[in-house]
């Protein structure tokens, strides 16, 4: 178990390293001088040169890279081109909104996919199964932005049940916070739910055919208990892996959904920074997200131990 987690941790650190290296190289290989971007649109040659020295962009790449990575270890993500604000500050300011969105979306995804996936697996081959499978393949194909816009069109603009956009911090007004999160969470949640449903269905119907499920039935446990206790834990193993990937995908989706619903989260910050060519911010957000993905994956790996005693040994 320990070696397994350590190995996975290694892979994830490698991801982090790769993102850093690729990002760093891209900045310097591709046309477009970061100093020009940093100095602003109206800067003259002298200002640009001064900015270059000020930001340390005139030093060798290796030195810059070393400084940047050692900074990362101290959780120093550098400073924004835009006003010289520490990148990490800007990120942590935006974190609550994005976290709210991600958690609410995961909730939606699980609330939809677990009943649907288990239900279709148990009634495999029935008309409900076919409808469920069709819905799931449709859901996988629907782009986040389209789902979001249709929800806004119908539920907000036409029916007026929800507000189209906006965000209120949890501690300012919890009810408004939840209310405003419904549409964004539905948007992000449904596509993830569709993917999860497919995997839950496949996994549960595999497990239901296993000998020990038959044993459980032969003990007279009742189908609910057989499914909830005996099938679910083992069916969860492959699903948990997919769940990890889906969290990553969901983080990607925040870029779109925060844009549609004007949620002041990290995704929105990233898109803004791309437009203003605030390179340290873009790279910093990329690395920050890579760290979150890393954390999620470590948690997922640890959950294997709970799900399968054999891994624990």
């Amino acid at each position: 178990m320990l070696t397994f987690v350590l190995r996975r941790l290694g892979i994830l650190l490698l991801t982090l390293g790769l993102v850093t290296v690729i990002g760093f190289l891209l900045i310097h290989i591709t046309p477009g001088d970061p100093a020009v971007a940093a100095a602003g649109p109206d800067a003259d040659q002298a200002t640009i040169a001064a900015t270059r020295v000020e930001l340390g962009l005139d030093r060798p790449l290796v030195v810059q890279f070393w400084e940047y990575t050692t900074g990362l270890v101290r959780l120093d993500f550098g400073t924004s081109f835009d006003g010289g604000r520490p990148v990490l500050d800007a990120i942590t300011d935006r974190l609550p909104a994005t976290l709210s969105l991600v958690i609410a979306s995961l909730l939606v995804a699980l609330l939809i996919s677990i009943p649907l996936g288990v239900g279709t697996a148990v009634h495999r081959g029935s008309i409900w199964d076919r409808i469920g499978v069709l819905l799931a393949s449709l859901g996988v194909a629907l782009p986040d932005f389209f789902v979001g816009l249709v929800l806004v069109l119908v539920l907000a603009l036409q029916l007026g049940i929800f507000d189209a956009t906006g965000y209120v911090p949890l501690f300012d007004d919890p009810i408004q916070w939840a209310y405003l999160l419904v549409l964004p969470a539905l948007t992000l949640g449904t596509t993830v739910a569709a993917e999860l449903t497919r995997h839950i269905r496949a996994s549960v119907s595999d497990v239901l055919e296993l000998d020990y499920v038959r044993t459980a039935r032969s003990k007279g446990l009742g189908s609910t208990r057989v499914i909830l206790k005996h099938a679910s834990r083992n069916a969860a193993m492959p699903v948990v892996t997919v769940f990890g990937n889906q969290i990553a995908r969901l983080l990607g989706g925040t870029v779109i959904v925060e844009q549609i619903f004007s949620i002041p989260g990290i995704g929105q910050l990233l898109v803004q920074s791309v437009f203003t060519r605030d390179i340290p911010m873009v790279l910093g957000i990329g690395i920050f997200i890579a760290m979150i993905v890393l954390l999620v994956n470590v948690l997922i790996d640890l959950s294997y131990g709970w799900l399968n005693p054999r891994v624990r040994a």
Partner: peptide, 12 residues
């Protein structure tokens, strides 16, 4: 059942 290897749930 015939298969003692697979007839018990590995998770409990």
């Amino acid at each position: 059942f015939q298969e003692p290897m697979t007839s018990l749930n590995p998770a409990y």
